[in-house]
Design a protein around this nucleic acid. Sequence first.
DNA 1: CGCCGGATTGAAGGTACTCAATCCGTGTGG
DNA 2: CCACACGGATTGAGTACCTTCAATCCGGCG
Lengths: 241, 241
Amino acid sequence: MQRSVSTFRLKAACSNCNLRELCLPVDLSIDEMQQMDDLSRLKRGYARGDYLYRSGDKFQSLFAIHSGSFKTQALHEDGREQVTGFQMYGEIIGLDAICTDHHTCEAVALENSEVCELPFNKLEALSRKLPSLQRHLHKIMSREIVRDQGIMLLLGSMRAEERLAVFLLNLSQRFAARGLSQTQFQLRMSRQEIGSYLGLKLETVSRAFSNFQESDLISVKARAVELLDLPGLHSLVGKQL
Amino acid sequence: MQRSVSTFRLKAACSNCNLRELCLPVDLSIDEMQQMDDLSRLKRGYARGDYLYRSGDKFQSLFAIHSGSFKTQALHEDGREQVTGFQMYGEIIGLDAICTDHHTCEAVALENSEVCELPFNKLEALSRKLPSLQRHLHKIMSREIVRDQGIMLLLGSMRAEERLAVFLLNLSQRFAARGLSQTQFQLRMSRQEIGSYLGLKLETVSRAFSNFQESDLISVKARAVELLDLPGLHSLVGKQL
DNA sequence: CGCCGGATTGAAGGTACTCAATCCGTGTGG
DNA sequence: CCACACGGATTGAGTACCTTCAATCCGGCG
């Protein structure tokens, strides 16, 4: 059992499923990687608008997004629904369901996407054998908690334009982490969905986009966005009360 | 190794640390319970205002609150801070730190409290041996994610009075789960802290309290609260938009 | 061409914020 | 013992920001 495999090899090993969050930091032997690969063999395609899971579905698996992107949204008893996150390829989805054995929100494909299913029982069994996988699984869950707390901060104390700036900079960073342009990208979601995520009405989102364009911070045409002044956007965050 | 130990025995076994969240649902043998007890042997006291940990502290352990209560708050770069949660005895705290190996928020005692320290390395090692503990740990983390998403919903789409009603009903439920009165209790936190948690200013919180009292939904005097009309409070949630 | 959904823009209104004064309970010192 | 100071809580008035409602625009598609 040889350890200290290069990150490069690991990427290759997990090639059947782009498990950016799940694989990369884990330091596994060839044999162990083979086990990971076995685990993530099920890959399925979803068309835009398809549900990956719905609220109330029995929990069986986590899902690693291999290509495309999703939104997750929570449904309130009174009919209100709120987007709780946008996930792109390389991210893990479905962690909310572990605690009740049933999904508490629903996941919808924002574009044609491919997803690897990770049966959670098998994942737990494997992580009992591989401490580095175990730790990594814990880190993924912890990161989700931290991410959510960041959004709580945003929703609880930021003004509309700050929220949108944070949102755009976050997207930018995630595109950059995938080797894509950090300044030019296509939004996969509607103004309505952005608003739901940021706790704003779609008109407010639209106005904020227009204001940013007016200030030469961004260029926006429908869902095509270009960030023209990253420092300017950054300085917008945390300005006022 | 005998399994299927009664819940009652489990409670007793974990008596040195009231690990409501961590122990109760786990179905362990006597020997395994002993290992849990060994794990949670370190118990420390904290006075009102003491920090359990600060933002940036190296991550070593999770903490199980044995008595008393805490608040956790996140610090923004620009100096803003926001309360991300109130924890009472029986709850686990510190999950945010796993992903970066450093605490991303700080925990402050709201009253004199006792806390069991759970060294995370040992917890992970033990959970590799005990699948039921492993699953339980995952559930705790998942529950934290679901809880945070509930707050996102609250912050993103509820009006001030709805937020306060949700807050009071949540407290009520947690007191009830501990065998305390679900209608009469002492708040451990200031209006300012409630406001920070709910994304409101302290004046708004105060006004909402007064309005509830005016409507005979609650009786409130400083930090002493009595819920007079639970159904009324429930019906307030999810009313409008 | 005309429809449709999504996006933009405008005007009016409402909710929560800001600023400021007052109140209240507790603890301190004369 | 009372006076006073202090922090937390309450209440009021004016304002800012976001929402609401409504009209218009734009691009894609039948």
